[in-house]
Computed example of a mutant assay.
Amino acid sequence: MNTIVIIVIAVTCIISYLALNDMRMFEKYKFNVGAIQQRKEYFRLLTAGFLHADFMHLALNMYVLYMFSPAILNSFGVSGFLIIYIVSILLGNLFSLLIYKNQAWYSAIGASGGVAGIIFASVSLNPALSEIGIIFIPFVRIPGFIFGLLYFGYSVYSMLKPRSNDNIGHAAHLGGAFFGLIYTIIIYPENAVQNMVYLLIMSLPLIYLAYEIFVRKRIG
């Protein structure tokens, strides 16, 4: 495992821990539509990716990031990994800003956008090698595209269910996943074409989310 992944995880864990114990810091750096639109605090588009709602939210995102990173590092190197992760966080939160632009109260946190980008890029490259062990039962392995289907399915459910207010950036998954996929298509188009069936299966929850947002206008 490349040192850069450990550094990203360590920095995220430290910042998340500090923010969970300092609500002023948490409020200052979380994603908030009103603060971004009215006070032009665009830094929140990035800093929100280093905050988490609780330990389980942090642990899940960092574990998934750790498990899906090797394929990215092997194919794109450190710079490619950082580009996918950081830009996916930014685009994920920009997408959230777009769909919640009329809800100034809306807030969210989490590395979900960046993790979504890493998952999509990894499966695009090689779904056979993209797999993840269940936490505490690492010998049970789940194919990456199946895990992605479940991961995004839960996120879409959490985002669309009535009175959802967990402050986790579920909406960021769509923007992050889009960038991870597009980046891989640009660099390795043949891989993405060969693995299109796996990507389509994994994308089903996000396709449904896009339908709810852009066709039914259920959100925003």
Rank of each mutant, 00 (worst) to 15 (best):
6 I>M: 09
176 G>Y: 01
43 F>Q: 07
151 Y>H: 06
166 D>Q: 01
47 T>L: 07
168 I>G: 00
37 Q>G: 07
32 N>F: 03
63 Y>W: 11
15 I>M: 02
71 A>E: 13
148 G>R: 09
187 I>G: 00
174 L>M: 06
150 L>C: 09
54 D>H: 14
79 S>F: 14
64 V>W: 01
77 G>L: 11
203 S>Y: 06
184 T>G: 08
162 P>T: 11
39 R>H: 12
58 L>V: 04
16 S>A: 12
125 L>W: 11
195 N>V: 08
24 R>N: 12
218 R>H: 14
171 A>V: 04
68 F>H: 03
3 T>K: 13
217 K>D: 12
90 L>R: 09
47 T>A: 06
163 R>G: 02
116 A>F: 04
166 D>S: 02
66 Y>F: 12
155 S>A: 13
157 Y>L: 07
126 N>E: 07
131 E>Y: 15
43 F>E: 04
64 V>Q: 01
170 H>N: 06
26 F>S: 07
5 V>K: 05
44 R>L: 08
42 Y>T: 13
186 I>G: 02
126 N>C: 11
89 I>H: 00
44 R>F: 08
186 I>P: 02
99 I>G: 00
14 I>K: 04
135 I>M: 11
40 K>P: 00
158 S>D: 03
84 I>F: 06
102 N>D: 09
217 K>H: 15
76 F>Q: 10
71 A>T: 15
160 L>S: 03
62 M>L: 13
199 L>R: 03
138 P>H: 13
138 P>Y: 11
116 A>I: 11
49 G>D: 01
53 A>G: 08
10 A>C: 08
52 H>T: 08
47 T>S: 15
10 A>H: 06
166 D>I: 07
117 G>I: 03
7 I>W: 12
99 I>P: 00
182 I>V: 13
126 N>I: 08
47 T>Y: 05
210 A>Q: 07
201 I>A: 03
98 L>Q: 11
211 Y>R: 12
55 F>K: 14
155 S>Y: 03
188 Y>M: 12
191 N>K: 14
87 V>A: 10
146 I>V: 15
65 L>K: 07
150 L>A: 14
62 M>N: 05
198 Y>G: 05
14 I>L: 09
107 S>E: 13
58 L>Y: 04
185 I>V: 12
220 G>H: 11
75 S>Q: 13
132 I>S: 04
99 I>E: 04
123 V>Y: 01
200 L>T: 15
136 F>L: 15
59 A>T: 02
35 A>H: 09
209 L>G: 00
105 W>P: 00
175 G>S: 02
211 Y>E: 06
196 M>A: 13
60 L>R: 07
38 Q>E: 10
98 L>N: 10
21 N>C: 02
1 M>I: 15
130 S>C: 14
70 P>N: 08
92 G>P: 01
75 S>H: 15
109 I>A: 08
